[in-house]
Design a protein around this nucleic acid. Structure first.
Lengths: 340, 340
DNA sequence: TTGTAGGCGTTATCAA
DNA sequence: TTGATAACGCCTACAA
């Protein structure tokens, strides 16, 4: 590999000069700068970012910690982050940790050892590594949390108003005449799981809908588990007229269960999905769903982090709270309310 | 940040000793090793991988270059790669380059400057950076290609037999009585696009099926474009009885077009999708589709690369060619053949 | 077994 | 404007 030393030698100048020329710093004559630049190209010089990182303690690398890249929600968010970060020459190290907090801890340490300039993370559900995050922050690591939160951590984050999202959906269903509503929620210990469930319970209570604990089950944000739960709920004699999903895997699980039992949507069962995936709009019927603004989430998180890094912004934590929107399609039926 | 110097000082030993102790090298007494390890933990020491990388010229980082993480095919492959790489302590830098070869070049250079130990790439369709890849390889960079190929590059790769996959599908359709088959293919200049198209043409010819150039259109691997093409094809008075998709976006495009025109699947139109996404099995009707072994692809690519890196294996390039499988569901109808 | 010292490729400081 | 030199933190001969 060719280094600035090689350029310096072959030009008979010092490495200091070469460095200045290459980095567009002042203190080099136009002529020499040009000769350096040409020689660099000629020799095929490529900066060694390890060495540069050692001196400048800046690596232009951002760690991104998520549970699963295979989940379209995360992959869309990441694409959006990359768009803004790439424009500023930053790279992403992606860490899939599943729901494994041990792995989360390991990856976090790895990111530190690689001297990333910052971390964007959707922490694991159990919040096991709260102290790790806190420690990192105390040591000056810039961290932006998204999707999931760890309470009592003083740092920037961007989330959607999960409670309101589900609350609104229940209200929408009530407006459509539904009084028996079931939900497959996620991991109760997780921020999103908990908030979404809360929104459901509150709405059911506020709106005076029928309340059946057996219609509220945890699918652990997984398709298989959600499928099982949905089956349990829908096979009962007295079953809800509408089901709400709380992430894209639970949507799939509910749909599969309905199909297996032979429930026609929306005639026999209304369904509200979560996240707006492309297939939902071409499904028969097209699925009404809750849509998270993945692009805004990714952009916001990246922008917040960039701000901290580049402007060494050290003001108090900023919180971005986004709204999810209901995309009305045709998987919800209108129910004639009999007189109450 | 605490360094081995700090540990050395606070223990009254040399940095060399600390380094040896930390890295489980011989030449340190049990007692000192223990004290070093304890002190390291106490001080919260974390290796600086930049510094280590400079010395050892090994970063335990792998660059992964793909067109779009949002495409489930890629995200699944990446998850699979990560599984094997993480076990060996390697990290992934993910680079989304779209179909932008300029960006591909920039990212490639960035990866070099970050001193990655190797690169796994699905090159852009136009093959514009052939010489860049070749140069990299010549300079000793370990590269494994997947999904797409650049011909005449001497390096490891893993692909599926694209031609055979589509050929088999056409044969399957013919067996089901179809003689009028259309296809939305991808980017003609890309390896996958070209091979899949070839497979189609050959099969149509070999099997003596009806050949209509207007039923063969490029959707550029995009939903919107595929949708438009499908619309064009299906709106004609004389339209095919079956359509074949050549990636997951084209599947979506065909489905949307069929839905808009009011073609019932499989009664009015048979459809064969590409890639086996979860929604396909719960669709009505469940979609018959060509499934790529994403996990094997990812695993193979990662393993090939690891082999080159860790064993400094320098034998001739190895090629892994996998088979795609047809998953038969219910989106293809049987057509009564009138006597020929 | 332990320690000294040099160097990986940069950048930054300061003197010429 | 230019260059010599000292770091950055680690590893590794080699010497003690």
């Amino acid at each position: 590999m060719v280094s600035i030393k090689d350029i310096a030698k072959s030009l008979g100048v010092s490495t200091a000069t070469v460095s200045k020329a290459l980095n567009n710093k002042i203190g080099v004559s136009k002529e020499i700068r040009l000769r350096v630049l040409n020689k660099a190209k000629e020799l095929g010089y490529i900066t060694n970012n390890l060495a540069r990182g050692m001196k400048t303690s800046k690596t232009f690398t951002i760690g991104v910690l998520i549970s699963d890249i295979t989940n379209p929600f995360f992959s869309e968010v990441i694409l959006s982050m990359e768009r803004v970060l790439y424009a500023k020459k930053y790279n992403l190290i992606i860490c899939n940790v599943g729901e494994n907090s041990e792995r989360e801890r390991e990856y976090l340490e790895l990111l530190v050892s690689k001297k990333v300039d910052g971390i964007i993370a959707a922490p694991t559900a159990d919040g096991q590594n709260m102290s790790v995050y806190r420690n990192l922050i105390r040591h000056g690591m810039k961290i932006v949390l998204f999707d999931r939160l760890i309470s009592k951590i003083e740092t920037d984050f961007v989330v959607i108003d999960n409670k309101a999202a589900i609350y609104d959906v229940v209200r929408y269903l009530a407006k459509m005449g539904h009084r028996k509503i079931g939900v497959i929620y996620g991991i109760e210990s997780s921020y999103t799981g908990c908030e979404r469930l809360k929104g459901f319970r509150e709405a059911v209570k506020d709106l005076g809908l029928e309340s059946h604990e057996e219609w509220i089950k945890s699918g652990y944000f997984m398709e298989s588990e959600s499928h099982k739960c949905a089956l349990d709920i829908l096979k009962e004699k007295e079953r809800p007229t509408a089901m709400i999903a709380t992430n894209d895997f639970t949507t799939l699980g509910i749909m599969r269960a309905a199909k297996e039992i032979g429930l026609k949507i929306p005639r026999d069962l209304s369904v509200i999905g979560f996240d707006d995936l492309e297939w939902m709009s071409i499904y028969s019927p097209p699925i009404t769903t809750i849509s998270q603004p993945t692009d805004v989430i990714g952009m916001s998180a990246a922008t917040l982090l960039l701000d901290r890094i580049e402007n060494n912004d050290t003001r108090r934590p900023r919180h971005v709270i986004l709204k999810a929107t209901l995309i009305e399609r045709e998987s919800v039926s209108k129910i004639q309310t009999r007189n109450v």
